[in-house]
Nucleic acid binder design. Structure first.
Lengths: 215, 215
DNA sequence: TTATACCTGCGTAATTCTACCTAGCCTTCT
DNA sequence: AGAAGGCTAGGTAGAATTACGCAGGTATAA
């Protein structure tokens, strides 16, 4: 049945908050029970007003959004967080989500995206703006470009295979028995890998393998 | 001006090829100059018929799609590859793109997605189906969940710091000198890391650090 | 038919890591 | 004040990796 969900808005632009409140409350299932113009205000407001969801910007004075997310998560673990921001880059997104946000929507997105995000989050799901989703994929594909152009192709098949096992955290001995080779052979391959890639230690090779997606 | 782009289709379903040819050639800018029912046929066909783009499935008999991509890339580096498949998972996508595909579209996608992919690829861009894009983001967000819930928080600050250096491919000696600690101290921390995380070897720790984003 | 590159493997010595343990010093919480 | 956890560092022993070189067999290309 129709419980009314209580929402708090946090953004340093009063106009945006006002407009947003108006839009959101067109759906009778939602009620904006408070507004804050910065992180400090948000935290103190939440001390006195209960809510189910916070919709917040990342760029705010006095305790910026990223910090606010962490603080809210610690002090009010049950309250969901939806980030609504103009920050359209991987870093902000990753940090926000890693710090505990449940959703990430851009101010340039259509309003129905925000509405969908709110509904999904209140149902316990996460929501990521398709714009951001596409952005992440672009980053990923670009990283593949770099990976391809750089150096994987100077490795022989055997070397790539060995590298893959290294990347999976296997010791030379294990690799040798898996491939039915002498440990010495594996060592030779590993040495060649190190020489070709200019990496001396195991750790570097593993990192290389993992970042190249060989794992 | 309007050069006609030459396209070859590779898929083991004849019906699909026929329908696809029909759809594609509705745009007079494209001409399907050949069809193959498997990887071998594709490669031999390309030896005699020039083309700008190959649209291919991944699951084909006689030299599967993944292998075919690599072979095409080696023997005909100028020909672009668009994967059209029902494989809707991260692994197939990653491998296909890593092996040199320029685009990835699902058979369940709307046709205009395929058309857009073809056009973008022929303009030198890459194209990834939004469905896949969303899938990748979901994987990413889920991995954040695991990272958060699992174990990073049972590590002390110093341990996280050490883990980060390990993840960056540094040997104990280097970490020690960087942090102005004894090698033995670093070893102790590393041992504790291994114990807490249940990971025995360096490689595993590096992999852990990298996948947790500590690098 | 030479080259060339690749895969395989060994020798030796030095370096590094692992696996146990102990232990002093510090801060924080009770 | 006492307990607990964290940071530092050492001892000892053994396991593993690294560095350097060497070399035979095979496949592929010039």
């Amino acid at each position: 049945m129709g419980a009314v969900y209580r929402i708090i808005l946090a953004d340093d632009h009063q106009i945006l908050r006002a407009g947003l409140k108006d839009l959101i409350e067109k759906d009778k299932a939602f009620k904006v029970v408070g507004q804050a113009k910065d992180g400090d205000e948000l935290l103190s407001l939440m001390g006195s007003v209960k809510c189910d969801l916070v919709i917040m910007d990342l760029s705010m004075p006095n305790r910026d959004g990223m910090q606010a997310i962490q603080d809210v998560r610690v002090k009010f673990p049950k309250v969901k967080i939806l980030v609504l921001t103009m920050q359209k880059d991987q870093e902000h997104f990753k940090h926000a989500m890693a710090h505990g946000a449940s959703g990430y929507v851009l101010k340039e997105d259509a309003y129905d995206q925000l509405l969908m995000a709110v509904k999904m989050i209140l149902r316990g799901k996460r929501f990521v703006s398709p714009t951001i989703s596409k952005l992440l994929t672009d980053y990923y594909v670009r990283s593949l470009d770099e990976a391809e152009s750089s150096s994987l192709d100077i490795l022989t098949k055997r070397e790539q295979q060995i590298l893959q096992f290294i990347g999976n955290g296997m010791a030379n001995k294990n690799i040798a028995s898996r491939l039915k080779l002498s440990v010495r052979t594996v060592e030779t391959h590993r040495a060649n890998l190190g020489r070709k890639l200019g990496i001396k230690n195991t750790a570097g090779l593993v990192k290389y393998a993992v970042t190249k997606g060989l794992s």
